[in-house]
Design a protein around this nucleic acid. Structure first.
Lengths: 231, 231
DNA sequence: TAGATTGTTAATCGATTAACAATC
DNA sequence: TAGATTGTTAATCGATTAACAATC
């Protein structure tokens, strides 16, 4: 169906639909309309119908969508029909949180191992998952055919970590380090930059209008200096 | 300047520019062109110039942008010129990671306290920051005039937590719980949903075309059933 | 002055919304 | 059949890209 690639915005909404369907199925709801899905998700009904229509006609006119059927379809679209094997690089608090969360609450993902370079952590476990030395990552990734890695190392070592794992077969990276990663052709990076989320939230948090008016005033009265001394 | 509200896409790029400017200033670079900023950020030079132009004329034709001056301006635009007082609700691994990160690496934000309901955590500290009982959150938030809260509690208790904090003055929430929050008018929520990031990454991680072809085939040959038995 | 780079306007592209025929 | 709701096409809206005059 997709003659041209489907937009990122659409793809980002699919996991939201999946989560809602999982919840509905748990509550034994077996049909749902786009209008109800709209209420649960916050997206418009039109948008939901359009998103789904990119991939096929999954609903029944007059009735809505069968939750189990639509769930199956979305799982296949995203590629979650086979459990995704991942590794997490960086066993700090964030790495630990993600390891725990994904191994207990995310049935679509299997965290096979955690890697770190801190000798005090190597050999320990997070729940049932082993922490190995980063040196063992290459062979582990190759042996298990790992394609997806989650990077929670400090910004300073993120690039070298990514170089290492992509060299051994990783083609998708969820990056939590606040840095722009350079990766080979064909490798996908998603940045989960928590500072950016927080700062853009702060923009909205208060007095937006006043702040911008004040700023505008300053710009009008002073000139932007070429080499300046900030007074 | 902004006659209509500035788009979210623009606002999300501002923290990226800020980070790059911070790095440049540290490296004692004092002028930078939009072209160079493009290389550092991954956004186009045109887009960067346009983004900045929404707020004023901060550059110098022929020369570029003074890094310190532009940084000051962006800080004011986002609203980071006064340190932002925040609290983190949920002292699990994710809450701990965010507390540590923001108190050591994010100079624009001040984490004043962490709250949790687990008696084993209450009274302890994360670095220098106290963990209090969630019951103390209302008075703490009011006394310190907290406007921004970071929610890292389990999905199950996220809504009641948000109800509690918004009732006492919080107007901006960074939500890590995988759930749609209902908030009063005027309260801003940013969802940092790590599962969604991971799942949408997986979509791109491999064999996208093949998967969709296979799916399309299935849809063509079978019919979408109204009440179905998934074979 | 010549070269460089901004700020801004116009053109293009893409995504969302609206409308409605199809159909269960 | 009547009512409901999808799937799809058309209209609108918004964001990005391109182009270039302004100007340092």
């Amino acid at each position: 169906m997709p003659d041209r690639a489907i937009s990122k915005s659409v793809i980002k909404r699919l996991p939201v639909y999946l989560r809602i369907l999982d919840q509905l199925i748990e509550r034994r709801v077996d049909m749902i309309s786009s209008k109800e899905l709209s209420k649960e998700s916050g997206f418009t009904a039109e948008q939901i119908r359009k998103d789904l229509a990119y991939f096929g006609a999954f609903g029944t006119r007059g009735a809505g969508y069968n939750t189990a059927y639509l769930r199956e379809k979305i799982i296949k679209i995203i590629g979650l029909d086979e459990t995704i094997k991942t590794v997490i690089i960086g066993a700090g608090n964030l790495g630990t949180a993600l390891t725990r969360y994904n191994s207990t609450k995310n049935p679509y993902v299997d965290v096979l191992a955690v890697f770190d370079q801190d000798p005090r952590l190597i050999g320990k476990k997070i729940d049932e998952i082993n922490i190995y030395s980063i040196d063992e990552a290459p062979s582990f990734i190759e042996e298990h055919g790992i394609k997806v890695a989650i990077i929670t190392v400090p910004a300073m070592s993120a690039q070298e970590t990514v170089d290492l794992v992509t060299k051994h077969g990783v083609s998708a990276i969820l990056n939590f380090a606040p840095i722009k990663l350079n990766v080979p052709e064909g490798v996908h990076v998603h940045n989960a930059d928590l500072t950016i989320e927080l700062q853009s939230l702060i923009y909205y948090s208060s007095a937006e209008d006043e702040r911008l008016k004040r700023l505008q005033h300053e710009v009008k009265t002073k000139k932007s200096p070429k080499t300046l001394s900030l007074e």
